[in-house]
């Protein structure tokens, strides 16, 4: 009994230290970043495109746009392919094949992001440069790389969502004379909707936060991209590129960029959790 209590106490301590680590990081980022945001004001920080650390101009608008644009692009690619894969694997392909393919797709998540970036730089970037023009380092290249990177997340969570749909819905639809495809998009996708939305939002969180691969293929320029072939800079790449040599207000501005990122990702995660939970409740009635 005494031993049980001691172990429980030790485990509790470990769990608490993990959570407090999270809390400390949050406090630290905000403490370092918030003063600069307050000083520059929302207009001078969030809505200015003028990022010039030497002249003490810290406007991150072009990076916010950059992050949002490539995330949107990645989600279009990731959702089309990820959801498509999930549908094929749960509904249309033989179970034995699905049992092999699903772990393989999940394995994609384990590849280091620098490898994705590297593949992007040596294959996708020159391809875009040669066939579409522009520098190749672009919104398009970044979206493709990120789209592939979020694929495992979107696919495996969508598969779980589709699998949790009661089989009786499928049978009911087939028994009414619906084709498999009609049953899929009119019943299964609707029934799994909340899980799929959660999958997409979680994928979005990954895409917004990805850094290494993005630095390698986005071009890191400070302008707002006007076509998919233009280079860009994201919030994450801004921090990673400049943190090494930043001091003073410049350093604070990078922390402020991190605060922005932190808030965006928190919102996405909370949205995903809320939607997924609502879905679970409606499936259980």
């Amino acid at each position: 009994m005494k031993q049980d209590k001691a172990i429980a106490f030790a485990l509790m301590l470990i769990a608490l230290s993990a959570v407090s680590g999270l809390a400390l990081i949050t406090v630290f980022i905000f403490k370092e970043g918030l003063p600069l945001i307050l000083k520059s004001g929302a207009g001078g920080f969030f809505f200015s495109t003028d990022w010039d650390p030497k002249a003490k101009q810290f406007g991150i608008f072009s990076m916010i746009v950059g992050s949002l644009v490539v995330t949107a692009g990645a989600m279009i690619i990731g959702t089309v392919f990820g959801l498509g894969l999930a549908i094929v694997l749960t509904i249309f392909c033989p179970k034995a094949l699905a049992a092999i393919l699903k772990p393989l797709i999940e394995l994609l998540a384990g590849i280091p992001s620098v490898v994705y970036g590297f593949i992007g730089v040596v294959t996708i970037v020159p391809f875009i440069r040669d066939y579409f023009g522009g520098p190749g380092l672009s919104v398009l290249a970044t979206s493709i790389v990120l789209g592939v990177m979020v694929l495992p997340t979107v696919t495996s969570i969508s598969i779980d969502a589709l699998k949790s749909v009661p089989r009786s819905y499928w049978e009911g639809s087939i028994a009414l004379g619906a084709t498999e495809w009609q049953s899929t998009h009119m019943v299964m996708l609707k029934a799994a909707r909340s899980g799929i939305v959660a999958a997409i939002i979680l994928g979005m969180g990954r895409a917004v936060g990805e850094t290494m691969a993005v630095i390698m293929v986005c071009g890191n320029t400070l302008e707002i991209p006007s076509t998919p072939l233009d280079p860009l800079r994201t919030l994450t790449s801004n921090i990673a590129l400049e943190m090494g040599y930043a001091t003073g207000e410049h350093r604070e501005a990078l922390f402020a960029t991190a605060v922005t990122l932190f808030v965006i990702i928190m919102i996405l995660n909370i949205a995903a959790l809320t939607i997924a939970r609502r879905g679970i409740m409606s499936n259980n009635r």
């Binding site: 009786s168 639809s173 009414l176 004379g177 609707k190």
Partner: peptide, 19 residues
């Protein structure tokens, strides 16, 4: 699909779609 339209089925547990 035509056969199943002519021969409809009602299941053991009510299974209305989540619509």
């Amino acid at each position: 699909t035509h056969l199943r339209r002519r021969v409809g089925m009602v299941f053991q547990r009510p299974n209305p779609f989540p619509l």
